[in-house]
Design a binder for these strands. Structure first.
Lengths: 234, 234
DNA sequence: GTCTATAACGAGATAGAC
DNA sequence: GTCTATCTCGTTATAGAC
């Protein structure tokens, strides 16, 4: 808090940010598997051993990038949701699609960071527990939207097959004890399916298939929301 | 066709297979980005330059692995579909879920090959046109199942938003001119969402979330089929 | 013609001595 | 922090065995 400490702390923050920026650049150029502390250091005009004052290992740098990415996509979704909340109060389906579109927009703008968190696992790297919280942000937001809709007007979902009932109960207890188990199952499905749509676009599976990506995604996301019970249509 | 040619050809096929097998082993251990011709050659007791008799470059070896993977998952889905066709004739939803479950089963059994084709793109590698055909097999199978259902008893789908109408027409023309545009859109969405479910499981996003993976997936796949119009439920 | 081995290139990573 | 010696890589040219 003294001026000197403040300057030191500020420098540390700046250098940490510069390291992560350069690491993100390498992520884009070479992929997460080839991320190397040495190359980052070289590009920054530092010596590799100096980096260890900021990140104790390559894996910890990777973890920081992963957490940043989860936080960025989570914040984008949350902010879009907050905007939609005031722009169209009570329209739960609009809140849902706003969050979904924010996820897609962020992913298209940051394909390599998206690949880092929702693509193939990095060989030899296992995510520590620190990533669980940030990784849950989008999912928890979707749960929140569904909860608001449920408390507002209830939901009408298709009944689940009997074999899934225990898992549904367990899921609901884990993530949202106040919601009916079928809704919990529908939410987890929709969550995975949402990222299926985004991944297919970002990873190139839609090349030569889908052209009007924006409207296509918007329609699919709305459909997902409807099927999660946010609007009764039958 | 003479004995000598047959022996040569057989040896060539065997060595090609051995190279791909070893490459797949490295794929699992180090990831596609670090796949190295030299390491493959070393492990096989060959010299790196000898590999060029079989694959003109590292990227062509990658392409071969990608095509094999697409063909493997496509064949698995097609075979499961064929079995379901005779086991439950006329039950289009059962045919759909059988194909979906085969995709998941293959993916869980071959996570690294799955990651190669449906995960993050390999940095610096761009897939040649040869991969388009094999990459389309699962999608075309889903189209075929939907076509059978459509010709059998028609479909009832939600109307599309107007902005999506041109893209829907274009999509239907491209992939299945005999199917109504809304069905084409629903199929592409379901295709992407199916792989979203599989990717979340294979890539670890379901860790600490979904436990009964098999029944969860089966229910979600059935739901996807229903929503694609394979069964009218409203 | 078909294959393998040797050697080499230029580029990059890595380990250790200083 | 710096320098160097030694690795790796993809790829090619060349020569010789079958």
């Amino acid at each position: 808090m003294t001026p000197v400490q403040g300057a030191r702390a500020r420098a540390r923050i700046e250098i940490t940010a510069a390291i992560k920026d350069e690491a993100r650049r390498q992520l884009a150029a070479e992929g997460a598997a080839k991320l190397s502390l040495r190359a980052v250091a070289r590009e920054l005009g530092m010596v590799s051993s100096a980096l260890y004052r900021y990140f104790p290992s390559r894996d910890e740098l990777l973890t920081a990038l992963i957490i940043d990415a989860y936080d960025a996509v989570g914040a984008a979704a949350e902010q879009a949701h907050a905007t939609a909340l005031t722009a169209a109060p009570g329209d739960h389906l609009a809140h849902w699609t706003a969050a979904c579109r924010a996820v897609r927009t962020w992913a298209v703008a940051h394909p390599h960071e998206y690949a880092l968190i929702y693509g193939s696992p990095v060989p030899g790297y296992t995510a520590p527990e620190d990533t669980i919280g940030p990784a849950s942000r989008v999912g928890l937001l979707l749960v929140g939207i569904a909860r608001a809709a449920y408390q507002d007007k209830g939901i009408a979902l298709l009944p689940l097959p009997d074999v899934l009932a225990p898992e549904a109960r367990r899921l609901a207890e884990d993530m949202a004890p106040d919601l009916p188990p079928p809704l919990a199952v529908a939410l987890v499905s929709a969550w995975a399916q949402l990222f299926g749509l985004v991944s297919f676009e970002v990873f190139g599976q839609f090349n030569n298939v889908v052209q009007a990506r924006d409207t296509f995604f918007a329609a699919a996301a709305e459909r997902l929301g409807r099927e999660t019970g946010l609007l009764r249509t039958c």
